[in-house]
Lab assay of single mutants.
Amino acid sequence: IRVFLPNKQRTVVNVRNGMSLHDCLMKALKVRGLQPECCAVFRLLHEHKGKKARLDWNTDAASLIGEELQV
């Protein structure tokens, strides 16, 4: 999953079965001084340019493999 972060940063996270978005993104956020409780995560909708859909931090990350997200 490719993730666009604040301050023009980005990362790619690996996903294993059973992991939530929170689990996958925790380290990437922590390294940058961010906390999931203070952030929202969105899936970028490529079929609708510029649109995005808000996701819950408990979403199964395996269902988002190959997607691009924005925090």
Rank of each mutant, 00 (worst) to 15 (best):
L25M: 07
L25D: 02
A53V: 15
N7A: 04
E37T: 06
V15I: 08
Q70R: 05
D23A: 09
K49E: 15
K8W: 01
C39K: 02
Q9V: 08
G33S: 04
I1D: 03
H48Q: 15
L34Q: 02
N58V: 02
D56F: 02
G18H: 06
D23V: 08
L55F: 00
K30T: 14
R54K: 11
L44I: 10
E37S: 12
R2T: 15
E67C: 10
A61S: 08
V13M: 06
K51A: 12
V13A: 06
Q70S: 11
L34T: 01
L44H: 11
L29W: 04
T59E: 07
K30G: 04
R43C: 10
C39L: 02
V41T: 04
M26F: 14
K52F: 13
V15S: 01
V12D: 06
G18K: 10
A28S: 10
N14K: 11
A40H: 12
M19A: 09
Q9K: 09
M19D: 11
I65S: 07
G33W: 02
F4I: 10
S63Q: 09
T59W: 02
H46L: 07
I1Y: 08
C38D: 15
R2V: 14
V13H: 01
L44V: 14
Q35P: 06
P36H: 04
D56H: 08
D23G: 05
L34A: 01
N17W: 09
C38Y: 09
V13D: 00
P6V: 01
K49Q: 13
L45H: 15
R10F: 10
P36S: 07
R10D: 15
L25T: 02
L64W: 01
H22D: 02
A53H: 09
H22W: 12
L25K: 03
K8G: 15
A61T: 02
R2F: 08
D56L: 05
A28V: 14
D60H: 10
K27E: 15
R54I: 09
T11M: 13
V13F: 01
K52L: 14
V71E: 03
D23K: 08
G50E: 11
L5F: 12
L25W: 01
L29V: 01
P36W: 10
K30S: 12
D56E: 08
E67R: 03
I65P: 04
V13W: 00
H48R: 13
N14V: 10
L34F: 09
N14D: 11
K51E: 15
N7F: 04
A62H: 08
E67P: 01
R43W: 03
I1G: 00
G18N: 08
A40Q: 15
F4D: 09
P6K: 05
N17A: 15
K30D: 05
R10Q: 15
L44S: 11
G33R: 04
V3G: 02
T11C: 10
V41H: 02
W57S: 05
L44T: 14
D60Y: 00
L64Q: 05
E37P: 08
L69C: 04
G18M: 00
L44E: 08
K27Y: 08
C39S: 04
L64V: 09
G50I: 07
D23Q: 11
L5P: 00
N17P: 15
G66D: 05
F42S: 04
R54H: 10
N14P: 13
D23P: 00
K27P: 15
S63F: 06
V15N: 04
S20E: 05
K8D: 15
Q35S: 15
L69Q: 03
V41Q: 01
N58R: 10
